[in-house]
């Protein structure tokens, strides 16, 4: 369970996130949708504890900076961030050891298989294409079997098969009871999987939609354009 209460983040004079509050329940996929510059990545980074902010963020009741919170949280950044000189396999081993994971090898092999990385486990981080790096970055985030996971624009750079696998992974994590928070500006990429959508504009949530409230995904798109003022 992820709870955000009145979180505000400023970059100098720019108000990136303005008094934002929301929740992501257990076994729920929440999508933060918004145009470029809406503050989506900023709120995700605040939750991950990477930015200083005001307001309260709790992960399963723990403050997001507490070690207990960090143990159950994962974050997949927008730009894949890998170590140049570590191989794909070494990335996973490093994360597993840093999080003191046991018996993770089989799950790692499954993830490699799903994301077509099985034949690239000996490749160095710097030798991979952007899409491949993104896949490794996703594996590093997922391998810890987190209870709360944050994805920042996860589909960028992925091939169609990887996008399909990732969508399935979202659903599997939800079914396992994980709170999944995804930020994106591409509505098409989260169709079929979302439970709740938070539409952000200029640092604020301007609308919240639940899956039960809409007939189909086209309605979501129309609503998005209407509330963000980006309709033609």
């Amino acid at each position: 369970m992820l709870q955000i209460k009145e979180v505000t983040k400023r970059y100098g004079k720019v108000l990136a996130v303005d008094q934002m509050s929301f929740e992501v329940g257990e076994g729920e996929i929440t999508v933060v949708l918004g145009p470029n510059g809406a503050g989506k990545s900023t709120i995700i980074k605040c939750i991950a504890g990477l930015l200083q902010h005001s307001g309260e963020i709790t992960i399963n009741g723990y403050n997001n900076k507490d070690l207990e919170a960090k143990r159950i949280l994962s974050y997949i950044p927008e730009a894949p961030a890998l170590f140049d000189s570590l191989t794909v396999e070494e990335h996973i081993h490093f994360i597993a050891k840093a999080y003191r994971l046991k018996n993770y090898e089989e799950y790692a092999a499954q993830l490699f298989e799903r994301f077509d990385l099985s034949d690239k486990t000996d490749k160095l981080g710097k030798e991979l294409s952007r899409g491949m790096q993104q896949k490794v970055s996703i594996c590093c985030g997922v391998i810890t079997r987190p209870k709360v996971i944050l994805f920042d624009e996860p589909m960028i750079g992925l091939d169609p098969k990887a996008i399909k696998e990732l969508k399935e992974l979202f659903v599997e994590m939800r079914d396992r009871g994980c709170s999944v928070l995804i930020s994106t500006h591409i509505i098409d990429t989260i169709k079929e999987v979302w439970d709740k959508v938070l539409i952000m504009n200029k640092g604020k949530i301007v609308s919240t939609m639940l899956r039960d409230e809409v007939q189909d995904d086209n309605e979501l798109e129309e609503h998005f354009f209407a509330v963000t003022g980006t309709a033609e």
Partner: peptide, 12 residues
Amino acid sequence: LSLHYIYLIPEA
């Protein structure tokens, strides 16, 4: 320090 891993690892 420019990657997120070090901040997320659950250690003091």
